[in-house]
């Protein structure tokens, strides 16, 4: 009887590690480089090419935010999102918080979405992205780099209305459940000059709290990292921290920082939402249900 139990356990473990749907060997070792190794790649690109500044004419503007699109081969909901923010005259920039694809080299289909959507002349419509855990599964990291050279950066939005202001948006990579010591040092250095910015927002993929049972089957970062970032944000003027990963919306404020988990925007999910950040003297967040544009369903 004992032998049968051992055989049963070994068979289950073998099946688990040979599953075709998930990189189960990554339970032990990820094929992607470590976050510190990725940091060095990011900084090489960032130092060579600098960081983006987006100019807007008014004191107020909007930022569209989506996450967890998990594109496989169908990207019609993503096309709808892109068209929506491109049509919005107040929106110069959009952000996607990671888990762009599900697995198996689907970045082609993610980028394909942009080709089908009309651009509006003379209107900036940059989309910034970062990576999630699904973007480092298998060997996806190398494929990501073919489309985006960095997943840790910052960009500034400068307003040129009556009250000139600068807003700082910082993107961090915590796809593997940790920010890494090098990235946190970089963040501390960046936030040391927080006084020059009107608003500071930080975003990454993995949520750093586990406040409800929707996070039952996913991992956050370690307790030490959560608390280190909490105090860093609170003491350096960060107003909002955005994340995805959980697929279920959450908002709460603590220590002067608003922590937001944005709903997922998967193609197959009928309960998809994106977030709009309304930026003025104050920040305001609204959430909007999204369905695939019916005109696209016939294509």
């Amino acid at each position: 009887m004992k032998k049968l139990i051992y055989i049963y356990i070994v068979a289950i473990v073998a099946l688990l590690f040979n599953s075709c749907d998930e990189d189960m060997k990554a339970l032990v070792k990820s094929k992607a480089p470590t976050v510190n190794e990725r940091y060095k790649q990011y900084m090489k690109y960032n130092l060579e090419h600098g960081y983006t500044t987006i100019q807007v004419h008014d004191d107020e503007y909007t930022v569209y935010v989506c996450t967890d699109t998990h594109v496989a081969t169908v990207n019609k909901k993503l096309q709808t999102f892109i068209q929506t923010y491109r049509n919005d005259k107040t929106c110069p920039v959009a952000v996607c918080l990671g888990d762009l694809v599900d697995a198996y080299h689907s970045y082609y289909w993610f980028n394909d979405a942009f080709k089908h959507v009309k651009t509006i002349p003379s209107k900036p419509d940059t989309m910034f992205v970062t990576i999630g855990n699904h973007d480092v599964f298998f060997n996806q990291w190398e494929h990501y780099l073919e489309y985006w050279p960095t997943a840790m950066y910052y960009f500034v939005v400068e307003t040129n209305g009556k009250n000139k202001a600068k807003d700082l948006y910082i993107c961090l990579d915590n796809a593997q459940g940790t920010f890494g010591e090098l990235q946190i040092k970089w963040l501390k250095h960046l936030l040391a000059e927080h006084g020059q910015y009107r608003h500071i927002i930080v975003y990454a993929h993995v949520n750093i709290f586990r406040r409800d049972n929707t996070s039952a089957d996913i991992a956050t970062v370690s307790l030490e990292e959560t608390y280190e970032l909490m105090s860093l944000f609170s003491q350096n003027g960060v107003e909002q921290f955005w994340s995805g990963h959980d697929h279920a919306r959450e908002e709460f404020t603590h220590g002067g920082v608003k922590y937001i988990i944005v709903d997922s925007m998967e193609q197959e999910n009928n309960n998809s939402f994106y977030m709009i950040l309304h930026v003025g003297d104050k920040l305001n967040n609204t959430f909007h249900h999204i369905e695939t544009d019916p005109a696209l369903l016939d294509e």
């Binding site: 339970l27 990820s30 855990n133 459940g177 993995v206």
Partner: peptide, 12 residues
């Protein structure tokens, strides 16, 4: 950390 995300890395 990150085991449950299938992307483990050393923390401490």
């Amino acid at each position: 950390v990150g085991i449950a995300n299938l992307a483990p890395s050393f923390f401490g």
